[in-house]
Simulated scan of single mutants.
Amino acid sequence: MNRRARLLLGAALLGAVALGAARAQPTPPLPAPVAGEERALTLEGFGKVAYFADPRGSGRPLILTVSVNAAASGYEMRPLWDAYAGQRPVYLLEWPGFGHSARPDVPYTPELMTRALTALVAQLGQEADVVALSLGSEFAARAALQEPRIRSLALISPSGLGEPRGGSPQGAGRPQSGWLRALGGPLYALIRTRPSIGYFLGRSFRGPLPRDLVDYSVATSRQPGARFAPLAFIGGGLFTPDACGELYSRLRQPVLVLYDRDGFVSFGRLPEFAARPGVFAVRIEGTDGLPHFEKLPEVRAALDTFWQGLER
């Protein structure tokens, strides 16, 4: 047995113990991530896709989308929701397989995620600004290539603009491997423990890790079916192999990129992308992947300046 096989077997055994302990306890319902009305879309061949709505305010609707990881949820965008709710119509989309959306054991692909966003834009029936986070930026860009009513994109620490870092999945766009499917349950049970979730979230913060974000991440990772979409992510099947060339460089909408450092992605191709007309890059210094938690005033100032420029 080689070293990799021994490591996988060890992780599976530890995960099996964690999985058995988790199954012994009832799963409480997942609270709403934000103070909005929960609504739902139905995707053919998939089922329910959840989104939260606060239609108050005026102006073009704002759609917030989340990242993709072992415990992704709408809570990741709560600071931006709280900043804009009541001022302009705000909608928060939870990708298929995450949050309050259905979590069936089906193939999770970039096309499925893209369908969720384009369906929400169609439901709104008007132009909207989209803010996307991390890998969600690739789905948002793919949707913008298909849906002209996406007026602009703001991408926070987007993947696809450089090489993955720190052991994050490669952008292979490949189907889930046999070993991952076989060991997926125990492996995910190990990943979703509080120490594991705290470790990975901590790599996205320069300062203290918010306890409420950890609590919510643990809660969402314990919902029935929670492992299926994250395992597609871990296997690399949700990435576009060349997102910069295949997606970002083809965009015609105005784009804002907010970045600094990130424990999971790099931005080696950002200068190339930012040199294109209509593309703006703003560095939110002193942050590590979730700048809207640590430097919300700076993030909001950059977003507001970007959107005001669209009106001019």
Rank of each mutant, 00 (worst) to 15 (best):
A102L: 05
F293Q: 05
G36P: 08
A275R: 15
R252Y: 09
A72I: 02
L135G: 01
K295Q: 15
S67V: 05
G235N: 15
L155C: 07
F239N: 10
P158R: 02
H100A: 01
M77T: 14
R283Q: 15
L290K: 09
A172M: 09
V34F: 07
L124Y: 07
L303P: 13
L209W: 07
I150R: 10
A53G: 00
A141P: 11
Y51G: 05
E37T: 15
E298N: 12
A85P: 07
V66R: 06
F267D: 06
P96Y: 07
F273P: 04
T220K: 03
A119H: 05
S58L: 10
A71G: 03
P107T: 03
M113K: 13
E285I: 08
L13E: 00
G236Y: 09
T287S: 11
E246H: 13
M113N: 13
Y216N: 02
I63L: 12
G198V: 03
L303I: 14
E311A: 14
P297G: 06
L117N: 08
G167R: 05
R165N: 00
G97D: 02
M1C: 13
S157V: 11
P158I: 04
M77Y: 06
L153F: 11
V131S: 01
W81V: 06
A12T: 15
E246A: 15
L30I: 03
A172S: 14
R56V: 03
L258D: 09
R151N: 10
R227A: 12
L310A: 08
Q25I: 11
L13N: 00
A24V: 05
G47D: 01
A119S: 15
E111R: 14
P89L: 04
L251F: 10
L112H: 04
E76Y: 15
P29Y: 05
A11G: 14
P55S: 01
L258K: 12
G185R: 15
P175A: 06
V282N: 09
I150S: 08
L231E: 04
I197P: 00
